[in-house]
Amino acid sequence: MAKDKTAPEKTGRIQQFRQTYQLTKKTDRRIGLWLLGAFLLVGAVGFVVFYFLLPSKGVIGLVMAIVGAVLFGSLAALILFGRRAQKSAYSQMEGQRGAAGAALRMLRRGWRVYEEPVAVTKQMDVVYRVVGPPGIVLVGEGNQHRLRTLMANERRRHERVAADTPIREVICGNGEGEVPLAKLVRHVQKLGREVKPAEMTDVLNRLKALDANRSPVPMPKGPVPTSMKGLRGNLRGR
């Protein structure tokens, strides 16, 4: 039974890598050459290191050196693939509605990411919310001037139920004072560590009560990027 369960998982993982590779190749035509070069170069270094540093010589030493070279080369190619795939995904999402929300889903363990926005204007300016070590982070996407008012209103709503929790505001974009899409996740992660994991449950329960009294927020129409979902799964599987 266990074998039958693992087989579809492996097939799904391979399919996921294939899809991510195809998406990446749309904007990074030389991705295959980069991966091959990284595998050969780092693999050669790994071969030399294993062959000359291991005490075993002869056939056993050669086999271990080849295995080490394959491991080193594969790891280097996988790391490079993850970085270039991430860069490509951000490039494809740039300018699309919902891009900030898709990027925020890259946040890993220790973060609570709300996929639906907490506020939307008629012009489709959007405010997303994530909760993590820095506290509550409101991330705006759209026109900066309209977002200032929208985010200020959301800050006041959140302060009513979580007055002791730090609330940060970030606007995703390429204007002055905004955070580019490609740097959004890292920027949010570097906002500090003021909420302990033990306090997260209380904060989330307070926000749940706030959301219960909120009218449903319509999702912004238009292409919502999904390429980050597969990429996130690939990075977690490394």
Score class of each variant (00 low, 15 high):
Ser56Phe: 15
Ile31Gln: 07
Met93His: 10
Ala65Asn: 02
Thr24Ile: 07
Met93Val: 08
Gly73Ile: 03
Ser88Ile: 06
Gly98Asp: 11
Leu71Asn: 03
Gly58Glu: 11
Lys122Glu: 13
Glu115Pro: 00
Leu75Ser: 11
Ser91Val: 07
Met106Phe: 06
Phe52Pro: 01
Arg105Cys: 10
Gln92Ser: 06
Ala99Cys: 04
Tyr51Arg: 04
Gly101Tyr: 13
Leu71Pro: 00
Leu35Val: 04
Ala102Pro: 11
Leu107Asp: 06
Leu75Thr: 06
Thr27Leu: 08
Val67Thr: 08
Gly32Ser: 10
Arg29Ser: 14
Leu80Ala: 12
Gly61Trp: 08
Val48Tyr: 06
Arg97Val: 08
Leu62Ile: 15
Phe39Cys: 02
Glu94Met: 06
Phe50Cys: 11
Ala119Arg: 05
Leu54Phe: 14
Leu23Glu: 12
Lys25Ile: 02
Val67Ala: 15
Val42Cys: 15
Leu75Ala: 07
Ala99Lys: 05
Lys57Phe: 12
Asp125Asn: 15
Val42Pro: 01
Gly98Tyr: 08
Ile60Glu: 13
Ala99Gly: 03
Phe52Tyr: 15
Gly61Met: 10
Ala69Pro: 11
Gln86Ser: 09
Pro55Tyr: 05
Thr24Gln: 05
Thr121Leu: 01
Arg84Ile: 03
Gly82Tyr: 13
Arg97Trp: 14
Leu62Trp: 14
Val45Arg: 02
Tyr51Pro: 02
Ala85Thr: 00
Ile79Asp: 03
Val63Lys: 03
Met124Trp: 11
Val59Asn: 07
Ala100Pro: 15
Leu40Arg: 01
Leu107Tyr: 14
Ile79Ser: 05
Val59Arg: 05
Leu23Arg: 12
Pro55Asn: 08
Pro117Ile: 08
Ile66Phe: 09
Leu40Gly: 00
Tyr21Val: 04
Gly58Ile: 10
Glu115Arg: 13
Met106Cys: 13
Tyr114Gln: 04
Gly95Trp: 06
Leu80Gln: 01
Leu71Arg: 01
Met64Trp: 11
Gly95Lys: 04
Lys57Trp: 13
Gln96Thr: 10
Gly73Ser: 04
Val63Trp: 05
Ala89Asp: 06
Phe47Leu: 12
Thr20Arg: 01
Leu75Asn: 04
Ile60Thr: 11
Val49Pro: 01
Val42Gln: 08
Ala100Ile: 07
Val45Tyr: 03
Ile66Lys: 00
Leu36Arg: 01
Leu36Trp: 10
Met106Ala: 03
Met124Lys: 11
Met93Asp: 08
Ala102Leu: 09
Val48Leu: 12
Trp111Leu: 09
Gln123Ala: 14
Leu54Tyr: 14
Met106Leu: 14
Thr20Ile: 15
Ala44Asn: 12
Leu36Met: 13
Trp34Arg: 10
Gly61Ser: 05
Val59Met: 07
Val67Arg: 00
Ala89Thr: 04
Gln96Phe: 02
Thr121Met: 06
Leu35Arg: 05
Thr121Val: 03
Phe81Tyr: 10
Phe39Asp: 01
Ala100Ser: 15
Val63Phe: 11
Ala76Thr: 09
Phe72Tyr: 15
Glu116Met: 11
Met124Val: 11
Arg109Pro: 02
Ala44His: 09
Pro55Ser: 12
Gly58Cys: 13
Val113His: 11
Thr24Trp: 07
Trp111Gln: 08
